Simulated assay, not measured.
Amino acid sequence: MTKTYEESSQTGDFLEALRLAVERARTEHSPTDGMIDWRVAAIRGQRGGIAGLNLITVVIEVKQV
């Protein structure tokens, strides 16, 4: 069984979005040994337009043990 976690960066920073998703997974999943098994499930983004967007979203899947 897996659970997904999704986080975004408003500055288009992939590593920031990934770090936030992994941190959230560790906090919400709270394994006793502090380790989680995750993989990137999706990456998507928006750039430009009238609003000048530079958004990237990372979705990770975490194995539930």
Rank of each mutant, 00 (worst) to 15 (best):
A25V: 09
F14W: 02
S8C: 08
Q46N: 10
D13N: 14
R44F: 06
P31K: 07
V59A: 05
D13M: 09
M1W: 10
I43M: 12
Q46T: 12
S9G: 03
T2I: 12
S8M: 13
L20N: 06
H29C: 14
R24W: 07
L55W: 05
L53M: 07
G12V: 07
T32G: 09
R39E: 04
E28D: 06
T32I: 07
V62C: 04
L15A: 08
R39M: 05
G34Y: 12
M1F: 14
Y5E: 04
L20Y: 03
G48M: 02
E7L: 09
L53T: 05
I60R: 00
K63Q: 04
T27V: 13
N54S: 08
R26V: 07
M1P: 02
T57G: 15
V58R: 00
R44D: 10
R26L: 14
T57N: 13
A21L: 01
G45W: 02
V62G: 01
R39T: 05
I36K: 07
I36P: 12
A25Y: 02
R19V: 08
T32H: 11
T11S: 09
D33L: 12
T2Y: 15
T32A: 12
D37S: 10
T4N: 13
E23Q: 15
A41G: 10
E28K: 10
Q64V: 11
Q10I: 11
V58K: 00
K3P: 02
L15Y: 05
V62P: 01
G34A: 10
I60M: 01
T27D: 15
L15G: 04
R44Y: 09
V59P: 04
M35E: 10
E7Q: 15
V62I: 06
A42E: 12
A51P: 13
M35P: 05
I56P: 00
T57W: 08
V62D: 01
R44Q: 11
I36D: 06
A51D: 08
L55K: 07
L53N: 09
L18K: 03
A17P: 00
D37E: 08
F14N: 01
R47I: 13
T32F: 11
V58N: 00
E28F: 13
T4I: 04
I60V: 03
F14K: 00
H29W: 15
T4P: 06
H29Y: 13
A17V: 00
V22K: 08
N54Q: 04
A41M: 13
E7A: 15
G48Y: 02
A41E: 11
V65K: 14
D33Q: 06
A25L: 14
R24I: 05
E16F: 13
I60K: 00
A42W: 07
P31I: 09
V65P: 04
A17S: 01
A41R: 10
Y5Q: 08
L20C: 06
T32Q: 12
E28G: 06
T4W: 06
M1S: 07
G49L: 09
G52L: 02
A25S: 11
M1A: 07
P31F: 14
L53C: 09
L15E: 03
D13Y: 12
E16I: 04
R26K: 15
T2L: 11
L53F: 11
A51T: 09
